[in-house]
Design a protein around this nucleic acid. Structure first.
Lengths: 265, 265
DNA sequence: AACTGTGAAGAACTTCACAGCA
DNA sequence: TGCTGTGAAGTTCTTCACAGTT
């Protein structure tokens, strides 16, 4: 089986596609739930359903990790939990700092799932001197002045930014300078970081806007089912008043016929 | 130009790729910032930098919306803001309910960016009777019993779930039954919804796990730079002392030679 | 000269469908 | 028989590179 396979995903020589990595936590969660119910094995089909993906994708994903299943049977839950945890680096402990202890930062600090899998909140940091020493989620808030020492003393390599947008880049720079190489950014800004530093972004308003986009589309399609394809007509419908006033408009059009004339809102 | 083009993105007949939709909010934010500084026009290069993407991608993205730029010049900031807003459906007002007013729900309610662009918090809903009536972010918390009436009275089509994982599916079902067709889920669960309902997920611990994965890889790859990531090395350095101890291991391997033997942590 | 808009090539990801093993 | 593991086909997304426009 694995023996004699010269293959290797090719892509970037070292393995596991990003899309797969992004799903591993999902599988892990589903597996953990099974494990807690003492379920010994799962099929790709069952696990896929629990994780909200389809089974072909799941099997392909697992194939990047190795051959951890048994044909005709399925996967050993405990074993898979271990393998995925290891692959994700969760068999070690990751100290994390949260910077910006406002509403959101406090919520994050209190978030249980944080500590659950390999992550440990090493410190909460805020720029407001009045916050210093105040306990949040059982930890005393530290002042920004201590940021560098906290990071090096605790060997922190992951930082969470929950500050206002205006402060984010500056905080980011300090984190990076102090040795942080992975950042989870909740502030609505694009962070600029040097090569080798990973940034992931969580942005409420972006998510809502994406939902709004689809929501808007639905509004236009609802009436008559078949109407859907009509959208394709795009430019065509522009002139017409028929179909769908707003949704269709977007189609594809130059700055002429459409004429919002009056620009912004 | 547009004239005579039979083409059409092909894919799913109606347009704008999902990946593009996901970036429109990014562009919009960058454009809004420019607009506030009264910058009249931008080139694809400048805007791309501000949004954190490359210019070819940005131009391609915009090409799905229409030809809104001017060759040799760039894009009119105000005009683009308008076009993108319209495309995203932000020229209308979207009432939103937040269910689950714990730490996170409260943080979301207080989040300014919420209201900024077309979204309006119509109500905060919580299952705890003790919370009922208590003001959060200036709104009185309503009890779950009122969920259905709140949704229909306000024409809410977007719901935010910030409840514990255990309650999420149930809340989701009620939201959907009451007419909500877009859900932003902060609970760490896979939500099952009928066709036609969109769900987007925001999951702290998944993001952290993805970061951990890359962080772990870095630990193994680093030649000899700063001690920064040293902390990460931790468990990794255990076995090998050579190149990349743990990171490499994952490569691809069957359940034989590797032998963690002792399973989970 | 400067910059957009876009075919075409390429890379990444997903899905199919089935060979192969327990 | 049942279910995994995976080539191959299909789809989506990204990047290139240049023709077209102001």
């Amino acid at each position: 089986m694995a023996t004699g396979r010269t293959h290797r995903p090719a892509t970037r020589s070292r393995g596991i596609p990003e899309a797969t990595v992004a799903r591993l936590p999902l599988y892990l969660r589903a597996l953990t739930a099974l494990s807690e119910r003492s379920v010994p094995t799962v099929s790709s089909e069952e696990l896929a359903t629990a994780a909200g993906v389809n089974s072909a994708k799941l099997r392909k994903d697992f194939s990047y990790l190795g051959s951890y299943g048994t044909r005709g049977v399925g996967y050993d839950v405990e074993y898979l939990v271990y393998q995925i945890s290891r692959e994700l680096g969760l068999t070690q402990d990751w100290p994390v700092v949260i910077v910006g202890i406002g509403n959101l930062g406090a919520a994050l600090a209190n978030y249980g799932g944080f500590a659950s899998r390999g992550f440990r909140v090493a410190a909460l940091i805020d720029a407001d001197p009045a916050m210093a020493g105040k306990p949040v989620a059982g930890l005393p808030v530290r002042h920004t002045d201590e940021l560098e020492s906290i990071i090096s003393d605790n060997g922190v390599s992951i930082g969470v930014i929950a500050t206002p947008a205006g402060a984010a880049q500056q905080v980011c720079d300090r984190l990076v300078a102090a040795g942080v190489t992975s950042i989870l950014n909740f502030a609505p800004t694009v962070l600029v970081v040097p090569d080798g530093v990973d940034v992931r972004k969580v942005d409420l308003s972006i998510e809502l806007q994406i939902l709004a986009f689809h929501e808007q589309r639905k509004a236009g399609e609802e009436p008559v089912p078949g109407a859907a394809a009509a959208a394709a007509g795009a430019a065509a419908t522009a002139a017409t008043t028929a179909g769908r006033p707003r949704a269709a408009t977007g189609g594809r059009k130059g700055p002429d016929g459409d004429v919002p004339a009056v620009m912004p809102a």
